[in-house]
Simulated assay, not measured.
Amino acid sequence: MTLLLLVAAIASEVTATVSLKLSEGFTKLVPSIMVVVGYGAAFICLGQALKRGMPVGVAYGIWSAVGVAAIAVIGVLFLNERLSPVQVGGIALVIAGVAALEFGGMR
Protein backbone atom coordinates (compact mmCIF):
# COMPACT_ATOMS: atom_id res chain seq x y z
CA MET A 1 0.00 0.00 0.00
CA THR A 2 2.85 2.43 0.77
CA LEU A 3 4.30 2.00 -2.71
CA LEU A 4 0.88 2.67 -4.27
CA LEU A 5 0.58 5.86 -2.23
CA LEU A 6 4.04 6.91 -3.37
CA VAL A 7 3.10 6.28 -7.00
CA ALA A 8 -0.02 8.42 -6.50
CA ALA A 9 2.11 11.16 -4.94
CA ILE A 10 4.49 11.10 -7.90
CA ALA A 11 1.67 11.14 -10.46
CA SER A 12 -0.02 14.05 -8.67
CA GLU A 13 3.22 16.03 -8.43
CA VAL A 14 4.06 15.48 -12.10
CA THR A 15 0.54 16.51 -13.11
CA ALA A 16 0.79 19.64 -10.97
CA THR A 17 4.20 20.56 -12.36
CA VAL A 18 3.08 20.20 -15.98
CA SER A 19 -0.03 22.22 -15.11
CA LEU A 20 2.21 24.91 -13.62
CA LYS A 21 3.89 25.29 -17.01
CA LEU A 22 0.52 25.29 -18.81
CA SER A 23 -0.99 27.85 -16.41
CA GLU A 24 1.26 30.55 -17.91
CA GLY A 25 1.93 32.27 -14.60
CA PHE A 26 -1.49 31.38 -13.19
CA THR A 27 -3.28 33.29 -15.95
CA LYS A 28 -5.23 30.22 -17.12
CA LEU A 29 -7.89 28.97 -14.72
CA VAL A 30 -8.05 25.20 -15.32
CA PRO A 31 -4.29 24.55 -15.24
CA SER A 32 -4.03 26.83 -12.19
CA ILE A 33 -6.63 24.76 -10.35
CA MET A 34 -4.76 21.58 -11.37
CA VAL A 35 -1.58 22.99 -9.81
CA VAL A 36 -3.21 23.49 -6.42
CA VAL A 37 -5.13 20.20 -6.47
CA GLY A 38 -2.16 18.23 -7.79
CA TYR A 39 0.37 19.50 -5.24
CA GLY A 40 -2.18 19.08 -2.44
CA ALA A 41 -2.86 15.48 -3.46
CA ALA A 42 0.87 14.81 -3.82
CA PHE A 43 1.63 15.91 -0.27
CA ILE A 44 -1.36 14.06 1.17
CA CYS A 45 -0.34 10.82 -0.56
CA LEU A 46 3.32 11.25 0.40
CA GLY A 47 2.29 11.92 3.99
CA GLN A 48 0.18 8.79 4.06
CA ALA A 49 3.04 6.69 2.67
CA LEU A 50 5.30 8.04 5.42
CA LYS A 51 2.64 7.43 8.05
CA ARG A 52 2.47 3.79 6.96
CA GLY A 53 6.16 3.30 7.59
CA MET A 54 8.04 4.19 4.41
CA PRO A 55 11.40 5.76 5.36
CA VAL A 56 11.40 9.47 4.58
CA GLY A 57 14.77 9.43 2.78
CA VAL A 58 13.75 6.59 0.52
CA ALA A 59 10.27 8.01 -0.15
CA TYR A 60 11.52 11.50 -0.95
CA GLY A 61 14.43 10.18 -2.99
CA ILE A 62 12.21 8.02 -5.17
CA TRP A 63 9.58 10.75 -5.43
CA SER A 64 12.06 13.38 -6.53
CA ALA A 65 14.08 11.16 -8.90
CA VAL A 66 11.06 9.74 -10.70
CA GLY A 67 9.47 13.19 -10.76
CA VAL A 68 12.56 14.82 -12.28
CA ALA A 69 12.91 12.11 -14.91
CA ALA A 70 9.20 12.15 -15.77
CA ILE A 71 9.04 15.94 -16.07
CA ALA A 72 12.15 15.98 -18.25
CA VAL A 73 10.69 13.35 -20.60
CA ILE A 74 7.29 15.09 -20.71
CA GLY A 75 9.03 18.40 -21.41
CA VAL A 76 10.89 16.92 -24.37
CA LEU A 77 7.94 14.95 -25.77
CA PHE A 78 5.08 17.40 -25.24
CA LEU A 79 6.34 20.85 -24.26
CA ASN A 80 8.93 21.44 -26.98
CA GLU A 81 11.83 21.51 -24.54
CA ARG A 82 15.33 20.18 -25.09
CA LEU A 83 17.81 18.34 -22.89
CA SER A 84 21.54 18.63 -23.29
CA PRO A 85 23.79 15.61 -22.74
CA VAL A 86 24.90 17.16 -19.46
CA GLN A 87 21.29 17.42 -18.30
CA VAL A 88 20.62 13.80 -19.26
CA GLY A 89 23.73 12.81 -17.30
CA GLY A 90 22.53 14.80 -14.31
CA ILE A 91 19.18 13.04 -14.34
CA ALA A 92 20.98 9.69 -14.56
CA LEU A 93 23.09 10.67 -11.53
CA VAL A 94 19.98 11.58 -9.53
CA ILE A 95 18.45 8.21 -10.35
CA ALA A 96 21.70 6.42 -9.49
CA GLY A 97 21.86 8.27 -6.18
CA VAL A 98 18.34 7.19 -5.27
CA ALA A 99 19.14 3.61 -6.25
CA ALA A 100 22.21 3.75 -3.99
CA LEU A 101 20.06 5.07 -1.14
CA GLU A 102 17.50 2.32 -1.65
CA PHE A 103 19.86 -0.60 -2.11
CA GLY A 104 22.39 0.65 0.41
CA GLY A 105 19.85 0.14 3.17
CA MET A 106 19.28 -3.53 2.33
CA ARG A 107 20.79 -6.01 4.74
Rank of each mutant, 00 (worst) to 15 (best):
V76N: 05
K28L: 01
G38D: 07
A100K: 09
G53K: 00
G75E: 09
V56P: 00
W63Q: 04
R82V: 14
A72Q: 09
A69S: 13
E81F: 08
A72L: 11
V68W: 07
E102K: 15
I91H: 03
G75H: 06
G89W: 04
L4M: 15
V35Y: 01
P55V: 12
A92K: 06
Q48I: 11
G67W: 12
L6M: 08
I10G: 06
P55K: 12
I44G: 08
A16T: 01
L50W: 00
V30T: 09
G47R: 03
P85V: 04
K51W: 14
G97L: 01
E81I: 10
W63I: 01
Q87Y: 10
L101C: 12
L5V: 06
A8D: 04
M1Q: 12
L22Y: 02
A49M: 06
E81G: 10
Q87D: 12
E81W: 08
I71N: 14
I44M: 13
L93A: 10
F43L: 14
K21P: 07
G57C: 05
L20S: 09
Y60Q: 05
T17D: 07
A42L: 09
I62R: 07
R107H: 07
G40D: 07
A99D: 05
G67H: 11
F26D: 00
L83E: 13
G61A: 02
R82I: 13
A8Q: 05
A11C: 03
V35N: 05
L29P: 14
I62Y: 11
M34V: 12
L83C: 09
A72H: 07
V68M: 14
L101H: 13
G67E: 14
A65D: 06
M34K: 09
A59P: 00
C45H: 10
S32C: 03
G89R: 02
G47W: 02
G89I: 01
G25N: 08
V30H: 04
L5R: 04
I44F: 15
L46M: 09
T27W: 03
A96Q: 06
G47N: 01
L22H: 02
G97I: 00
V7P: 09
L46T: 06
G104V: 11
Y39C: 12
V73N: 00
L46C: 06
A42I: 12
K28C: 01
S19N: 04
S12V: 13
F78Y: 08
I74C: 04
F103D: 05
V73M: 05
I91N: 05
L29G: 14
I44S: 08
Q87W: 10
L29D: 13
V30F: 10
L5H: 05
V86Q: 15
L77S: 07
A11D: 02
L93K: 03
E13K: 07
G105H: 14
V66R: 04
A42V: 11
V18K: 06
G40W: 05
T15K: 01
A8G: 06
P85I: 05
S23P: 11
E102L: 15
V18I: 14
I10T: 09
A11R: 03
F43V: 13
F43P: 07
